[in-house]
Write a protein that binds this DNA or RNA. Structure first.
Lengths: 123, 123
DNA sequence: TCCACATTTCCATAATGATGGAATTATAAA
DNA sequence: TTTATAATTCCATCATTATGGAAATGTGGA
């Protein structure tokens, strides 16, 4: 994941209403929710919600599909996964051991460890 | 971790210069770097860098210690770890299986799994 | 077609964030 | 104490983001 993309995703999540929308969609994954339902649950104006959904979409955090008169927004888990991967990579220093807890979170063997991947990429 | 705090941390990272500063500090963990060195490496004006360091400090992402005429800024890994924990928690839906990849990242047994912890907290 | 409703776009406004020059504060060496 | 360097604060400016009413667009049913 590129820096630029990580910033876009982080910025999309770094806003109260948007984080609330995303978390609500997570609770309703994988079907998702229509804007009307989201607006009602969170008390957001139509235009405001539409703005935030566009931001989340643009960041790749949610997808949408039309169904009849409704558009269902659902979270894109892969994007969150990539963000977590990015953070894990860049929270771990090249010199090992500076990030024990975060590193421990990574299941060894499931995928290359963070530092290893970065070393391979830049070498 | 509270919503509010997560937003503060996400917002701190969601900015090109600040993310660059943080990543630079990660490369120089755990000693850290002085603002003069950071400013030179990243080409930032003193005032601008100071502003960004304050944001990172306020979010708990960096700490500082004085040493002679210099102040060394170093990353606080625990904060990143908590952020990753928060994201992992809220990227995993209550209904299992919707977040396989991100969940797989968590070493089972190292700490309670994300969904489990949330269920326990809200129940 | 016409209507009802869902959603988005348009637009103006308000709020927040980023930037850096200049002045100020802090620390240590001469 | 004087001087040099490090870092922060002050402040003005510019840029971006958030908000929501009103109008426009899209969709399916009558």
């Amino acid at each position: 994941m590129q820096n630029r993309q990580a910033i876009t995703i982080l910025a999309a999540l770094a806003q109260e209403s948007r984080l609330a929308v995303y978390r609500l969609l997570i609770e309703h994954a994988p079907e998702g929710l229509a804007p009307s339902a989201i607006a009602e649950k969170l008390g957001l104006a139509n235009a405001t919600l539409s703005f935030h959904l566009k931001e989340l979409s643009h960041a790749g955090l949610v997808s949408s599909r039309q169904s009849g008169r409704f558009i269902y927004y659902a979270p894109v888990i892969e994007t969150m996964d990539e963000l977590v991967g990015y953070l894990t990579d860049h929270c771990c220093s090249q010199s090992a051991g500076t990030c024990a807890t975060a590193a421990a979170r990574c299941a060894p063997g499931k995928r290359p460890a963070a530092a290893t991947r970065r070393r391979r990429a830049s070498a």
